[in-house]
């Protein structure tokens, strides 16, 4: 397929996502190159900032470029060359490289491509790369690691990376309302049914809707406020879902080695965790 270019990111309907069928694929075989781009991305982050708790919409919240590129991401995932179904995929890890703050008035362009797959315990993982450029310069690079159970996993439990030592600096109990998923869907365009209604979540094996991983990450970074430097590398792991409605404890604080900050969202166990380090 190679590169597909758009002027603005395309709108991909829920039915397109639902109807996307996968085909047999061996987890050992690399995907064909799937890459889409848009010459213009038009930010409007005010509602997004409110839903995620960012105090300012300009410069753009550090997680917002992902929303800007949502259409491109869906176009890549629903591309006929991409061999896996879209519904039921799970966001497991995220890496963001924020090169510099992005002003809401900048002329932005975006590019998305997919790399993988890799074998995992419960399926196959692949990476969805999103790059945002301004005047030809890369200003933001997101790597979204996604688990697809359409591929066969090896059942091998991998050792978890050792948790770095850190000290609590912030700790807040959040109450997540039942409509949190719908509110985030409305500002992000991520209408995955597992986040929306109890009935739609149940279709995919969840007793209750679950919060978007991206929302959880954005809300955590908004809470960390000045502890997130303008130029930074953010890594996050999504270990457990956050059911809606529900309560979750957010905590963050400096790493013992002084290299940045760690954050965690906990219910009984850690559901989401990550680090923010200066770039």
């Amino acid at each position: 397929m190679g590169l597909v270019e758009f002027d603005l990111p395309p709108a991909v309907s829920l039915s397109t996502l639902a109807l996307k069928r996968g085909r047999r694929w061996n987890v050992g075989d690399p995907f064909p190159r799937v890459e889409v781009s848009a010459r213009r991305l038009i930010p409007d982050a005010a509602a997004y900032a409110r839903v995620c708790g960012f105090p300012l919409a300009d410069p753009l919240p550090v997680t917002y470029p992902d929303v800007l590129a949502r259409g491109l991401q869906l176009a890549a995932l629903t591309s006929p060359d991409f061999p896996l179904p879209v519904l039921g995929i799970l966001h497991t890890e995220q890496r963001i490289e924020a090169v510099r703050p992005i002003a809401a008035t900048e002329a932005l362009a975006g590019r998305v491509w997919i790399e993988g797959p890799r074998v995992a315990r419960q399926g196959g993982e692949f990476d969805l790369h999103t790059v945002i450029t301004s005047a030809g310069q890369e200003v933001w690079h997101g790597t979204t690691t996604i688990l697809s159970r359409a591929l066969r996993g090896d059942g091998v439990k991998r050792p978890r990376p050792q948790e770095p030592a850190w000290q609590t600096g912030r700790s807040v109990v959040w109450s997540l309302p039942a409509d949190q998923g719908r509110r985030y869907a409305a500002v992000s365009g991520d209408t995955n049914p597992i986040h929306l209604w109890p009935v739609t979540a149940r279709l995919f094996g969840f007793k209750r809707p679950i919060a978007h991983g991206w929302w959880a990450l954005a809300r955590a970074l908004a809470e960390m406020d000045v502890d997130v430097p303008p130029n930074c590398v953010i890594t996050a792991r999504f270990a457990k879902p956050l059911p809606l409605p529900g309560k979750v404890t957010f905590a963050s604080g400096p790493l013992a080695n002084g290299a940045g900050h760690r954050f965690e969202l906990r219910r009984k166990d850690v559901a989401v965790s990550g680090e923010v380090r200066p770039r």
Binding site: P55, S171, D225, V226
Partner: peptide, 15 residues
């Protein structure tokens, strides 16, 4: 060990 939520989190610096 801290009481979850006790330490709170400062209001956004910009505000």
């Amino acid at each position: 060990r801290e009481i979850a939520g006790n330490r709170g989190s400062p209001w956004p610096d910009a505000w």
